[in-house]
């Protein structure tokens, strides 16, 4: 699996680009994490990869083919997507929601083989006991696991995840991230995860991409990109980076005053 992003521009309005001239190349199997401060276009970038959004300029190539030439039904067979949240105006049961991930592969009748795949996914995430519950009764964390399960049963070659651990407790943050890493190895797929937890990303990801103000700030191995200088520049934080088992570990010391932001309550 190979994703190549060439000179990608994207703006929700013509004269205000969110993403400017993005160039990236990713080859799977690999576990990639995208980091960056709020509002730099992490989700937008992911949406451009699986054609939820159409780029304003530039192109995205998957195995050398421009995504704009691939039908979204074909894209859905290759690329799975786990959204940050999903609509549950008319809630389905958990099992039916997850089964929907089989949609790109199957016809309208669900086969037993599909059910087996669903079960494996639910089991992997430890939510088999929820299978018959309606989606709108779940807690935020359980809901997120259902979304994850749906992404898993899609059996994609590329899995895109938008903050998959945001609502999870610390234990499940670790177990889910570990699972994603194993997934990338076992099934030989390219997993791309947006995250705000630098330490989790640094500990498990093979590669980290840091976005800042509309572009790729840097990318590479965790040990290369997670440096005190980079964090200071991109996030505006004072941090120490220590090494732990060959991986960088970040100790956050302070938030630096940014332009336009003032320390109001000093002394705490």
């Amino acid at each position: 699996m190979h994703i190549k992003i060439e000179n990608l521009d994207f703006g929700y309005e013509p004269n205000a680009l969110v993403l400017k001239n993005i160039n990236l190349e990713l080859t799977g199997p690999k576990f990639v994490s995208i980091l960056g401060p709020n509002g730099v276009g992490k989700s937008t970038l992911i949406h451009c990869i699986n054609k939820i959004l159409v780029p304003t300029g530039g192109r995205v190539l998957i195995d050398g083919v421009d995504v704009s030439d691939i039908h979204i039904k074909e894209i859905a067979k290759i690329i799975g997507y786990v959204p940050y949240s999903a609509n549950d105006t008319f809630p389905l049961s958990v099992i039916d929601t997850v089964l929907m991930g089989r949609h790109p592969h199957s016809n309208w009748k669900s086969q037993d083989s599909d059910l087996k795949i669903v079960y494996k996914a639910l089991r992997t995430l430890g939510i088999t006991h929820l299978s018959m519950r309606p989606l709108n009764e779940l807690s935020a964390g359980q809901h997120q696991k259902v979304m994850l399960a749906r992404g898993l049963v899609q059996e994609p070659k590329i899995l895109l995840l938008d903050e998959p651990t945001a609502n999870l407790d610390i234990r499940h943050q670790i177990s889910v991230t570990k699972m994603l890493r194993r997934l990338s190895v076992d099934r030989e797929i390219l997993v791309i995860m947006i995250s705000h937890d630098i330490n989790i990303a640094a500990r498990y990801a093979d590669e980290i991409i840091i976005l800042s103000e509309g572009g790729v700030y840097t990318s590479g191995k965790p040990s290369e990109v997670i440096t005190a200088d980079n964090l200071k520049e991109v996030y505006g934080v004072e941090a120490r980076v220590v090494e732990d088992n060959g991986r960088p570990y970040v100790i956050l010391d302070d938030a630096l005053p940014m332009d336009g932001e003032e320390q109001m309550w000093e002394g705490n």
């Binding site: 949406h47 939820i52 039908h71 979204i72 074909e74 997507y81 999903a86 991930g101 309208w108």
Partner: peptide, 23 residues
């Protein structure tokens, strides 16, 4: 009736529907 699975996808919201291959 032949579109019921697509209607289910629609109910997840546009982004999810698209990511599962429904325009």
């Amino acid at each position: 009736y032949s579109m019921t699975s697509k209607l289910d996808l629609m109910m997840l919201g546009d982004d999810s529907a698209k990511s599962l291959g429904l325009n």
